[in-house]
């Protein structure tokens, strides 16, 4: 399979007489949550890391932090979903701006 591909490209190369041709590119990118403030105001941990609670439980087997996602409110403030779902049980307002909390979107 790989050989076939290689041969194809070899043919391509001969047609285009460019000196350098791309054969394979291993591109690296980093993703992070698209947030304004990179610390969760509730647990004081970076939103890229799992929240304190999840870290303590150290969910090792289930792809680590994928479970601990970020949530954005209508006010555009963001927190760990775990932290916020506990928070709203006490007080249905955004901890940062005191607006009524409603979820704008969830991280995935």
């Amino acid at each position: 399979m790989a050989d076939e591909n290689d041969n194809e490209r070899m043919d391509d190369n001969q047609k285009s007489d460019k000196m350098f041709t791309l054969k394979k590119w291993n591109a690296v990118a980093m993703w992070s949550w698209d947030v304004e403030c990179d610390t969760c105001a509730i647990c004081r941990v970076q939103v890229m890391d799992a929240c304190l609670r999840c870290q303590a439980e150290s969910k090792k087997d289930s792809y680590g932090k994928q479970d601990c996602v970020v949530v954005w409110g209508e006010c555009n403030h963001s927190f760990h979903y775990c932290c916020m779902s506990l928070w709203v049980k006490q007080n249905n307002r955004c901890p940062l701006c005191q607006q009524e909390w409603s979820i704008q979107r969830m991280g995935k």
Binding site: A29, M106, K108
Partner: peptide, 20 residues
């Protein structure tokens, strides 16, 4: 995915080229 932004780390990327 939702709510994620990507940053390309080209200093880490690499590849193979053919030199004729």
């Amino acid at each position: 995915h939702n709510g994620r932004k990507l940053q390309w780390y080209h200093h880490m990327s690499n590849g193979t080229i053919t030199f004729a």
